[in-house]
């Protein structure tokens, strides 16, 4: 099964709708609750990151019997230093993002913790693609 969602820059009113939709689908498919939670927490963090930092993008989710692969691809400033971004507490979030309850510098560390495989491709001034895999078996 394949699902695609759009990401709008700075739209915190609708941010989380894609993750919410994926959660409903995984529940309907009878996926184990632990794997549902890991998947949606990782996807939600990536979705929020893209809304907060990028100019727009897409989310692609593929689900089969063995795994869930989520690709969050954005057009944006890119990540200058991935090692720093992976450190808990490091953040470049704007005051507006912090007012929404984010910007604690836990996004990427949370994604890493909740996925079995994480790949980040980033190019300064072009954008970032985060590929996350959760294995179901």
């Amino acid at each position: 099964m394949h699902y695609t969602f759009k990401i709008e820059r700075g739209n915190f009113t609708d941010a989380g709708q894609a993750s919410s939709s994926v959660k409903r689908t995984l529940k309907q498919l009878g996926v184990d609750p632990v794997n549902i939670k890991r998947t949606v927490v990782a996807l939600f963090e990536a979705e929020i990151n893209a809304v907060a930092h990028a100019y727009g993008g897409t989310i692609d989710v593929d689900i089969d019997g063995e795994k869930i692969v989520m690709v969050v691809a954005d057009e944006g400033p890119g990540i200058p230093n991935i090692d720093l971004a992976m450190q808990e507490g490091w953040s470049t979030a704007s005051p507006q993002v912090r007012e929404m309850g984010y910007g604690a510098g836990m996004g990427l560390p949370n994604i890493k913790k909740n996925t079995d495989d994480l790949k980040i491709d980033t190019k300064i001034g072009v954008g970032t693609t985060v590929t996350m895999t959760v294995y179901l078996t």
């Binding site: 941010a15 919410s20 959660k23 929404m100 984010y102």
Partner: peptide, 10 residues
């Protein structure tokens, strides 16, 4: 805000 609700959902 809405993000409080979304976070709790996840």
């Amino acid at each position: 805000n809405n993000q409080t609700m979304r976070t709790c959902e996840m």
